[in-house]
Simulated assay, not measured.
Amino acid sequence: MTTSSKSFWPIVAAVGLGVGFVGYCIYFDQKRRNAPEFREKLKAKRKKQKQHTSHSNEDFTIDSSNPEEMRRYFLEQIQRGEDCLSRGDLDNGVDHLAKAVAVCSQPQSLMSLFQQTLPPELFQEIIMRLPRVAQSVHGASSSSFGGGAIITEPDLE
């Protein structure tokens, strides 16, 4: 045997295995796609994903009579706001922080903290969004948050 015939058979075997693997993948994909529950599972997965994205973008009413739900929502909004701001997504970050202020039991203290830690333009944006966000968090019929009236301008002096 020559050296060229010795390297010929491993190449043929490798090509054969590659073709066999691709053929198996095509066969398996066809079988999967033709399975009756595949389309149902795919539709359910897409519907669930669509609902999840719409819930994350929707404003919804918080039950202000449930302190544990309010606390959880407050912490979640603070975390999301910090995450968004750290990524440079200022618009969503301000929205989440305004929602946290809207459900906070001591909004003046939180606003004072924000005034000291955030850049002035972000702090002003929170102030501007607060009435709209508070109304969306607590529902259109309620115009209060944290047990007090909506504060459009905190006492900055």
Rank of each mutant, 00 (worst) to 15 (best):
M1S: 05
T3P: 03
T3I: 07
S5I: 03
K6E: 12
S7D: 05
S7T: 02
F8V: 10
W9L: 02
W9P: 00
P10V: 09
A14L: 15
G16M: 06
G16Q: 01
G16D: 03
L17V: 15
G18W: 03
G20Y: 12
F21R: 08
F21D: 09
F21I: 13
V22I: 05
G23I: 02
Y24V: 11
C25N: 15
I26Y: 15
Y27M: 15
Y27Q: 15
Y27R: 15
Q30I: 03
Q30S: 02
R33C: 14
N34I: 06
A35P: 11
P36I: 10
E40M: 00
E40T: 04
K41L: 10
K43N: 06
K43L: 05
K45T: 04
Q51K: 01
H52N: 05
H52P: 01
H52M: 06
T53N: 00
T53C: 03
S54Q: 13
S56K: 07
S56M: 05
D59R: 00
F60C: 04
F60G: 00
F60V: 01
D63F: 10
S64Q: 14
S65C: 03
S65N: 12
N66S: 04
E69S: 09
M70S: 06
R71K: 03
Y73F: 15
L75F: 01
E76N: 07
Q77E: 12
D83L: 00
D83G: 04
D83N: 04
L85G: 03
L85P: 10
R87I: 01
G88E: 11
D89H: 06
L90A: 13
D91E: 02
D91K: 03
D91V: 05
G93W: 11
G93L: 06
L97V: 02
L97A: 02
A100I: 04
A100H: 09
V101C: 05
V103W: 11
V103E: 14
C104Y: 07
S105E: 13
P107F: 05
Q108V: 10
L110H: 09
M111T: 03
Q115Y: 14
Q115I: 06
Q116F: 04
Q116C: 01
T117I: 02
T117V: 00
P119C: 04
P120F: 09
F123D: 12
Q124C: 04
E125Y: 10
I126M: 14
I127N: 12
I127Y: 08
I127W: 08
R129A: 01
L130R: 15
L130A: 10
A134C: 00
Q135G: 09
Q135K: 15
Q135T: 13
S136M: 10
V137T: 10
V137E: 09
H138R: 08
G139C: 02
A140N: 05
S142R: 05
S142A: 04
F145E: 11
G146K: 01
G147H: 12
A149H: 14
I150R: 11
I151H: 10
T152H: 08
P154T: 12
L156G: 08
L156N: 04
E157F: 00
E157N: 07
